Simulated scan of single mutants.
Amino acid sequence: MTKTNDVRKYSLRMPKGWKPPFPSYTSEFDSDKTEIAMALFGLQFNIADRKKAVKAILDLKILVQNTQGCDYIDLAECIQDNTGKSQVVLTSYWLDGDKLSSLFVNKTFTQLWEQYADSSQPFGLYREVFNIPLSRYEIVHSHQDHLVGASHIRDSVSEEIDTHAYWGSMRDRIPDSSINRFDAEGAIEVVSQEKNRIVVAANHNLAIIRSDQNMNDSKGEERDEYYQDVYPTLVKGMQFLRDEGEEVNCYDCRFMSFLDDNGNSTDHTFGYAYFKSLEDLEGWSEHHPTHKAIFNSFKQYIPKHIATIGSRFGHEVSILPKENQFAEYINCAPNTGLLNRLNR
């Protein structure tokens, strides 16, 4: 991770003498890397059109994957978003944001994008694009071998860290939190709009969290207890953010499963959510009963199975300057993604 600022304006929230109840690790990036670009490409559809949408997203994946400069791609599916529709989503990571920008003017890409944008297609189309300063970013894993999202392009992995498993540790892991409170400024605003297409930018200091649960290698009692005791609380929390997120300033939440190369669902899930600010994300995490239930279930589950655990958990959090983001929605249902809290 990017080095924390030497001059600290705001204190750590770590309790004095803190000893974490289980180990965690962070992905590290060399000092010459200051930013990661992340672009999500999504198709929104009625479930009857899933086959067509999956074929389209796999074609898009091949195109993006063959573009020089894309460092990592994954595919995922949301069975039901906040509009009642389904989504398949391609998430791409780029260590060179200029190469991502060049994708958007690549003739092959623009032709395919406009083909998908035609209103005769059985799906809506969107892209959500972010340049993430590493000084405004944190990523944590339950195990050193756990690779998901941006950890696939890391330079190294840390030894055990102590800044985790207490309230406020998420903020403590973000380097610039030592000098910046990341207060929200402004609102989601329309950049441009024409017919079936709308481009928006969210408020300054938008907070994004991508939190994953990989059960592909879990077995026996460990697996059974997860699906009996942990998973139901996780689903309940994700549904709250999806359906009632306005209560905690969550703009949108998609609970998704990763897909394999053939478009089949795996046993690896993640929640992807936009909050107006880091303070709002923290408020839900620390105080709302839906997340407290998630936190407490994991806190009991992981130490119990830590010696032989096959499951893997982690998350990445980004705090976005307004100028580092945009999102385009074409033929999508009203309230999709960041449109859900437009001008609110």
Rank of each mutant, 00 (worst) to 15 (best):
N82G: 10
T108F: 04
I319R: 00
R254D: 12
Y10A: 08
E28P: 00
L320P: 08
L241I: 07
E28V: 08
R13H: 11
I161Y: 07
F298M: 15
S177C: 03
Q87W: 01
S277Y: 06
I36E: 15
I139C: 15
S31L: 11
K52E: 14
K19P: 04
C253Y: 06
C253E: 13
I153F: 07
V191M: 14
Y226G: 01
I174T: 08
T67V: 03
S156A: 15
E282A: 12
D32T: 09
I302M: 10
V140L: 14
I79F: 08
I302A: 03
L278K: 04
K322E: 12
Y126R: 03
S257I: 01
T266F: 05
Y10E: 10
N196R: 07
F123A: 05
L63C: 07
N331V: 12
Y329R: 04
A273P: 00
W94M: 08
G310E: 11
N340G: 14
A39S: 15
I188T: 15
S92Q: 00
D74T: 06
N66W: 00
L281N: 08
P321I: 00
H146E: 11
R312A: 06
V88H: 02
N214L: 02
I198W: 09
F298T: 03
I208S: 09
E194Q: 14
A184I: 04
I47M: 11
S257A: 15
T4K: 13
R136Y: 06
D243E: 14
L95V: 03
D260Y: 03
N205F: 05
K61M: 09
Y301V: 07
S101I: 00
A327T: 05
I62M: 09
E35G: 01
T233C: 02
V157Y: 12
Y10D: 10
L206V: 04
D155K: 04
I306H: 07
P334C: 05
P321A: 13
Y274C: 04
F326H: 12
D98S: 14
R312Q: 15
K51T: 13
I153G: 12
Y10K: 10
E246Y: 04
A165P: 01
T163A: 12
I57T: 05
I309G: 02
V190Y: 07
D74P: 03
N335Q: 12
N216Y: 04
